[in-house]
């Protein structure tokens, strides 16, 4: 059996395991200390006869203060340590490669920036940070790679994210951990972390002629012209009836009421489905039809991927 903790497969996982071990040490210490005293008292003060003398102690303020303050400090330390490591888990590195993940009952589907689609098997280059942009087509799922210590629910109509980096070549399990129906326990997959050569080979693998297809961004570009987005949203930075798509992703937009938002996948999805939900300062409401129900989740993801390519 492999080592349960400190498998050394990823740097982040090692950080997480350090928190695990830290907490396990605290748990073990408290458990042993409390129960050693408990069992000692049970044996030491066992009733010898009906005339045993027992103390009339009703409490001790100093002692009670001490055992209120010490646990408070301990849990605060655990909390801060946990938040710090978790902060790294939530911030993907700049150079992360984004792969779109769709959860359906009962399989995982992965789509790469170049349009390659894989079901159940996720191929990634070892040593490269990977950011997953995930959405569900039906019910709740949850994407879990136990060996790399990452997990995030996959929700319909909302993008959720996680990132990981497998430092070494290897094959790791993917589990669905949010109950999703009959085949929940068979919604499995594998992460294949490939070495440079194997990755190269996999990328260059001549696609099956029947499987040749457009990349998500290319499909998004087609949708962009098909639905007439270009009428109002330029791609060269010039403002039109609507804000330009150039450098849109990650831009900080401010609204009429003074609030601001950093544009991400979920913001673009909302703006496509319900354009009037938030109006960027300087633009008029009611100019764009709501595409709620018009575009599929796949279409929206493609459009977003196209918009991402317009960043310089």
């Amino acid at each position: 059996m492999d080592k349960i903790l400190f498998n050394g497969l990823s740097e982040l996982g090692t950080h997480v395991d350090r928190v695990h071990v830290f907490i396990i040490a605290i748990m073990a210490f408290c458990f042993i200390a409390c129960n050693a005293v408990l069992i000692y008292f049970m044996l030491r003060y066992r009733r010898k006869g009906p005339d045993d003398v027992t103390a009339s102690i009703k409490g001790n303020h100093l002692l009670e203060a001490v055992w209120t303050i010490i646990p408070t400090i301990v849990v605060l330390i655990v909390f801060v340590y946990g938040v710090r490591v978790w902060g790294d888990m939530r911030k993907p590195p700049e150079n992360a490669m984004t792969i779109n993940v769709t959860g359906v009952q009962w399989a995982w589907r992965f789509e790469y920036p170049d349009g390659r689609i894989e079901a159940e098997d996720l191929y990634v280059p070892a040593g490269q940070p990977i950011r997953l942009n995930m959405v569900s087509n039906d019910v709740l799922h949850s994407f879990f790679i136990p060996e790399l210590r990452v997990k995030e629910d996959v929700v319909p109509s909302q993008y959720t994210h996680l990132w990981f980096q497998a430092d070494y070549e290897g094959v790791y399990n993917i589990f669905c951990t949010e109950y999703c129906g009959d085949n929940h326990s068979y919604m499995l997959g594998k992460v294949h972390a490939l070495g440079p050569e194997a990755w190269d080979r996999w990328v260059r693998r001549v696609p099956d002629p029947d499987a040749v297809q457009l990349s998500p961004a290319e499909r998004g570009a087609k949708l962009y012209s098909k639905w007439g987005c270009l009428g109002c949203h330029s791609t060269d930075g010039s403002p039109n009836i609507g804000p330009t798509f150039k450098n849109l992703m990650g831009r900080s937009e401010s609204f009429a009421d003074g609030s601001t938002v950093v544009v991400d996948e979920n913001y673009i999805m909302e703006s496509i489905k319900q354009p009037n939900a938030k109006i960027v300062a300087g633009f008029k409401p009611d100019q764009m039809p709501a595409f709620e129900g018009q575009l599929s989740q796949q279409d929206i993801t493609d459009l977003i991927d196209y918009i991402k390519t317009l960043n310089e």
Partner: peptide, 13 residues
Amino acid sequence: LPLATLATDVHLH
């Protein structure tokens, strides 16, 4: 404790 801690709950959730 490990379930209340963010970094470790991700794995154990």
